[in-house]
């Protein structure tokens, strides 16, 4: 058992505006995660808002900054941070809704203008009978859609039109394994100023990705593919 100081970013349009940091002294155990602490604090302050779901790093909803770095709060052990003070803030480069909750709409909007050809439709065995709604689901392969990469990317921080590491990684994945997708259309989407050439290889996207998608490496893969095609 140890006592750790938590500084939590608070913002509510019209109520807590400008933003401030609330400080709490919290007792933590060996297994306590940042999400555990937030849930404990919320018992005393129901206005504290954050997003979470699965508690095991699978859903990607509890992305936030902990001591300035993008993490999933549910799998971030407090004592492993090795700091007496833990600063918790919302993800960067996304509209801030309240406290630690950001609007993920821009993250998903990156796919709309291009008809989302690089997001795979769910595939099931012919004999499987998934529920109707589940059958319609589409996902970016391997990606949790947590948005950590967009928060960490310095180019996204200065250019709202950049396609971004998540979308480019999804495109690269389809190029690696087309399964009938229209590859020329995908190359056309990524081969432009706001596509894979906009990346400046800061590689922070890969550094913070909780699921090993390696968006930075995937962007480099796309570049090589495009250069090879031009030869």
């Amino acid at each position: 058992m140890a006592t750790v100081t938590f500084k939590i970013y608070r913002y509510k349009p019209g109520a807590i505006d400008p933003p401030r940091y609330d400080t709490f002294r919290v007792e933590v155990e060996d297994h306590t995660t940042v999400l555990d602490v937030l849930e404990t604090l919320r018992l005393d302050d129901l206005t504290l808002t954050y997003r979470h779901s699965c508690h095991h790093g699978s859903c990607g909803t509890c992305g936030m900054l902990v001591n300035g770095r993008e993490v999933l709060a549910c799998v971030t052990n407090v004592l492993a941070l090795k700091t007496d003070e833990v600063v918790v803030e919302p993800l960067r480069n996304a509209p801030l809704v309240s406290d630690l909750v950001v609007d993920m709409t821009p993250f998903f909007e990156k796919y709309e203008p291009v008809g989302m050809p690089y997001i795979r439709r769910s595939e099931y065995l012919p004999e499987a009978r998934p529920p109707e709604a589940v059958g319609e689901y589409m996902r970016f392969e391997s990606c949790l859609e947590c948005g950590l990469c967009l928060s960490a990317c310095p180019v996204v921080a200065s250019d709202a039109h950049y396609l971004g590491p998540a979308a480019l990684a999804a495109a690269a994945r389809v190029v690696q394994e087309p399964r009938g997708h229209d590859l020329p259309a995908i190359f056309q989407m990524v081969d432009n100023d706001e596509g894979c050439w906009r990346c400046h290889a800061a590689m922070e996207c890969s550094s913070v990705c909780p699921n090993g998608v390696d968006p930075g490496g995937m962007i480099m893969f796309l570049r090589k593919m495009l250069l090879t095609q031009r030869r």
Binding site: N67, P154, H200, A202, M203, E204, S206, S207, G216
Partner: peptide, 14 residues
């Protein structure tokens, strides 16, 4: 671009 808090080696390189 110059926010370095929480960044790794590749962020420093950038």
């Amino acid at each position: 671009w110059f926010r370095l808090r929480g960044r790794g080696a590749s962020g420093w390189a950038f």
